[in-house]
Design a protein around this nucleic acid. Sequence first.
DNA 1: AAACGGATTGGCT
DNA 2: GCCAATCCGTTTC
Length: 201
Amino acid sequence: MKLPLSYYSNQDVLFLAQDLLGKVLFTKINGEITAGIIVETEAYNGISDKASHAYGGRRTDRTETLYSHGGVSYVYLCYGIHHLFNVVTSVEDEPHAVLVRAIEPLIGTEIMEYRRNMPASKAAISSGPGSAAKALGIDRSFNKKDLRGHEIWIEDHGIQYPVDSIIAGSRIGVAYAKEDALLPWRFFVKGNKYVSKPNKT
DNA sequence: AAACGGATTGGCT
DNA sequence: GCCAATCCGTTTC
């Protein structure tokens, strides 16, 4: 059920960003379990990717997590308000990561509704990286957690989307990365209401 | 030691 | 559609 370490060791972060669509992300906080189907991701491709925090091989206290062996979480605070959750992938010293930008609520939806103060029928409950993390109760204390542990983990429920329903587009909010901002490294499930805007390539 | 600005969101116009 | 909110890692003085 839980994805094994070998899954996260894959050195092709573009493959994993697409393959994680349909996988189920769980958290367990104070005994309360919530989970959602991953429906939108972005790949951050190591030291050559200008949009990555690890661009140029930069190693700081914050980015150190990215250099871990795949299979841990990377959570950081964005704009002083939002916690963004990433799956660290590949091998040690190869700082690849997949940003989870949206989930479809699956388990513990009433807990997510309480955290977000809105009904799960509203797409905004878990649409966008800050909202998806908040719905699952993820904050900075989840940084560098083993994704096969008992606080946060990812399962394969056999959900498979047709190839032609997975859309690739340019990543959001990375204009500072110049030419790399145009790379089609954002992936989402076509037509899923929880996918964040813009909903096109 | 101080300033800068971001892998965003939601409330108000 | 526009813009304030709000923290801290990172850069600069």
